[in-house]
Design a protein around this nucleic acid. Structure first.
Length: 210
DNA sequence: CCTGGGATTTTCT
DNA sequence: GAAAATCCCAGGA
């Protein structure tokens, strides 16, 4: 297992839907001092443009959603239902609102005895915090598990020391391993409710919902 | 498999 | 005052 490599600016400058699929299999890394919480992204949803009724941006720019109109590679974090935070990654160019919601992670330290995961941790050279199984299979749950809250809203993942994405160049998720489906929790979105803009790794047991 | 309600608080009208 | 990019639990088919 080679050391993980941080994803650079160019990675975030792809088309939103290509990027959504490219995010599957990448690693979300949260550093708190010398400790690390991390997991492999296994499920995402795309929110795209001004017309998408499911997107916060569909009713124009506000104090909350202004990050969505900013630069790609930045974290957009908001509170939902008074109890949870959701993490999104901004895509496209400045002034075009689009983002990808991170919906589920395969945690890397829930079975410390598993040799593959230990190898990743050792290669990363830092202490790992523990996440229990089932703590990262949903957008609100994974933010709670990785201690992601509004203080990280606007964090630039290309340069941040606290929150970023990385890849193992040997891991490549093929299109044939990806399932697309309708997005979750957007009954109010009219015809956009039926857009197949949710993407997840087929047969992965850490996704939030079949 | 499905549907519905409660928790809880920020955001927008 | 209502809605919300969630989660968990209960109940019915």
């Amino acid at each position: 297992m080679p050391k993980l490599i941080r994803l650079k600016k160019k990675f975030y400058q792809q088309n939103t839907f290509k990027l959504a699929k490219a995010l599957l299999g990448k690693f979300l890394i949260r550093k708190i001092g010398k400790k690390i919480l991390m997991g492999k992204i296994v499920e995402v949803e795309a929110y795209y443009g001004f017309q998408d009724k499911a997107s916060h941006a569909s009713r124009g720019k506000t104090e909350r959603n202004k990050i969505m109109f900013g630069h790609p590679g930045v974290a957009y974090i908001y509170m939902i239902y008074g109890m949870y935070y959701c993490l999104n990654i901004i895509t496209e160019e400045k002034n075009f609102p689009a983002a990808i919601l991170i919906r589920a992670l395969e945690p890397l330290d829930c079975h410390p005895e598993h040799s593959r995961r230990v190898a990743i941790c050792k290669n990363y050279g830092s202490a790992m915090l523990t996440m229990t199984r089932g703590a990262t299979n949903g957008p609100g749950k994974l933010c709670r598990a990785l201690k992601i809250d509004k203080k990280l809203n606007g964090e630039n993942l290309i340069t941040s020391k606290k929150l970023y994405l990385a890849q193992n160049p040997k891991i490549k998720i093929k299109n044939s391993q990806i399932t697309s489906a309708e997005r979750i929790g957007i009954d109010y979105a009219g015809k956009y409710k039926h857009k197949p803009w949710r993407f997840y790794i087929k047969d992965n047991k850490y996704i939030s919902k079949k």
